[in-house]
Amino acid sequence: MAVRSRGLTLRQRRTIWAYVFLLVPLLFFIGIRVAPTLFAMSVSLFKWDILSPTKPWLGLENYQTLFNDPVFWKALTNTLLYVILSVPLQLVVGLFIALLLQRATRWKGFFRALYFIPFVTSTVAISWVWRWMYEPTFGPLNQLLALLHLPEQKFLADPDQALFAIVIAIVWQAVGFYIIIFLAGLESIPSDFYDAAKIDGAHGWNLFRHITLPLLNPTIVFLTVIGTITAIQVFTQVLNMSYQGMGGPLNSTKSLVLFIYQQGFSSFKMGYAAAGTVVLFVIILLITLIQLRVTSRRVEY
């Protein structure tokens, strides 16, 4: 070996060392990411009652039960609603405020910090404050509605409104992150493009539609992927904003992750919960693949 290694070129030796250094994070990654994932997948094939010393083999029975469980389908539909509602809203509102902030010349840092604060605030605290604002009898939102002579709402207590109410709280918190990323994207667009277009007589909407939007494409792709993955995993807001963390009323706000949590840690059906996580894993994988393919067209000028 020693003789042969002396025969390696500098380039080959560098490559070997690169892999040696890569090995450490790789082992770490395998240890805390890949191995537990594989373990969870195997758990889903057993009747894994966490208190019980025996864990009988079930094969795919957990998946069968899962696909016949109406609560699972309800949770899945809710999760997709969280994605479909929150991601576009965050993008539109985030971009809108970013465009405004880009124009602000005074107190630039102050405004940016102000909009970013919710993102770095504890989600649990935010959820409870929103929960109190939505409170039907004495909450400020209903008092405002009463002042404006509008009909008062039940918000979180109404199965038809609760999910939307939670989405608003999610968007309110996440939008600060979107703004900062959009601002970075906007600032990376060279001003020459705008100057050239203005000389050609373009203005307002045309500038936005043909320069800003296409050049923001990588930013939008990034935010959509991140936003979708976060929304699919929504948990904390639902746990804290639904009554007793049940995902109610009538399961109308229950997300897939909350469903998994309840099965695993309240009903102790770990195998069943693991089957849910595998389904979640597959969904996230598929969505990410599709999004990367559809939205990663590069626009170059």
Binding site: M41, S42, L45, F46, K55
Partner: peptide, 12 residues
């Protein structure tokens, strides 16, 4: 991943 998942149960 899937192959590994199917192999794991015997070990677990």
């Amino acid at each position: 991943l899937l192959v590994a998942a199917c192999a794991a149960p015997t070990a677990a």
